[in-house]
Design a binder for these strands. Structure first.
Lengths: 243, 243
DNA sequence: CGTTGGGTTGAGCTTGTTCAACCACCGTGG
DNA sequence: CCACGGTGGTTGAACAAGCTCAACCCAACG
């Protein structure tokens, strides 16, 4: 056996880039020691903005963990209308939880995206074999069900301005959770993406932003928002923050 | 040891009513042999129409499996608006999947309801210890996430008539799945409950029913509906049933 | 320097809400 | 037995919210 430090076999199985990965402490990777990192890691892939990671109805492909960028998961109606169900942020795993047999939804890179790529069968077996990982998957599933339900209540009951307020609060929480700047928030989403997420038209989203500015609840440009009055926004959004 | 066939201890631990339970073949109970039925069974409870099984924010109580009747799970805004997130039918388990620490939502009996009652810790431990049961719980969770997502797309994208059409298709599928009469469907839900589920007002639901009748897609009374043209309804509902 | 892709804003229209009247059904009590 | 009130459903008319279509703005970029 060769002792050369970079034989092709060694390059394949050793030295994963995990130690410098910005999301090594997120989700499934959080409890991994170097040995398990090496066992689980396979490869990475980058996706251009607008590129589709998987399409509804297609047979299942690999499991993807987002390293950088944002993925929108959506359902599309035959006539082209689409509902963005969720935005996946760095650290999250997409194309896994919401799958049974085939993809039910569509995953699209909303920004430039970099992902870790795992063979599905291997990933499933590995997470099933390790209790701590299985528990993380389960907890994520429960939390996704909760936020989908909450989102449901927003779409069903809130007016357009209320929905945008709720969205901004949600976005802030998400940024905070991922250690990103929250004052101001960078808005990596177009008005159209926000509209498709909130079940309204982009013009209505734009008007809602204008209203919130006029009410001095936010300051906003095309790509940045500052939440000036978080409690005010939250109460608009119907969050019953009982103190 | 007494040989008397009905000592109090024996009454407590033996002879669960499972053999005659109408939902013994549903969900978690499906793979149970008599021994496991005896181990898992605790007791039953009935709830009057309108009674609240649990409230958002309360500490967790027991896990409930519905034997007969329908439970509506909803989120309520501070100002009283409510969104019915899901209807739970006989065989389903409620107050379990969507919980983390405390109840996030509210469960209310929409009809007279009979349930099996399981101590939560015991239930959790038992299902975790049996692989087949754990798998059923996991699959249910995934399927609930899928249907919540789909419901989200309906609320976000469909018009009022389309939503009612989608709801009727869904209801029919649900009845079929539970072996209930589907022609005509009995409608155990008030117009108000349907409205709260679809994010509209009861008057709008009523008008949508009238429109669907005029289009001869359905026949309906207060408490019964017949779906005359299922494909027609489905296409209204935006179901891309590719043949 | 023109073109292109978002974003904003206005005017008119459509859809769904609000408020109110009315109806059918059902159980209760005179 | 019938009058009564209550509950849930339907329908209409006026109104409001959000959508459509179109003009316009601005910054980025070839």
């Amino acid at each position: 056996m060769s002792e050369s430090p970079r034989s092709s076999r060694a390059a394949l199985t050793n030295d994963p880039p995990c130690p410098t990965c910005p999301v090594r402490a997120h989700n499934i990777c959080r409890p991994l020691d170097p040995r398990r990192q090496r066992e689980l890691y396979e490869k990475r892939q980058t996706w251009k903005k607008g590129q589709v990671l998987y399409r509804a109805g297609e047979p299942l492909g690999p499991v993807l963990k987002i390293i950088t960028g944002i993925v929108a998961v959506s359902e599309r109606l035959p006539d082209g209308r689409r509902q963005i169900l969720d935005f996946f942020f760095p650290g999250e795993i997409c194309g896994y939880l919401e799958t049974e047999g085939r993809y039910s939804f569509e995953g699209e890179a909303i920004t430039e995206v970099e992902t870790c790529v795992f063979g599905r069968a291997r990933f499933k077996a590995y997470t099933a074999a390790h209790d701590d990982l299985a528990e993380i998957v389960r907890a994520t599933l429960v939390s996704k069900l909760n936020s989908a339900s909450h989102h449901l209540a927003e779409l069903g009951q809130l007016s357009s301005v209320e929905r945008v307020a709720a969205f901004l609060c949600w976005l802030k929480a998400r940024h905070a959770e991922h250690g990103l700047e929250t004052r101001p928030l960078t808005l990596p989403l177009s008005r159209e993406a926000i509209a498709d997420h909130l079940g309204m038209r982009l013009e209505t989203v734009s008007r809602a932003f204008s209203r919130l500015k006029r009410l001095e609840l936010i300051e906003a440009s095309d790509t940045e928002v500052t939440l000036l009055d978080l409690p005010g926004l939250a109460s608009l959004a119907g969050s019953d923050d009982r103190p």
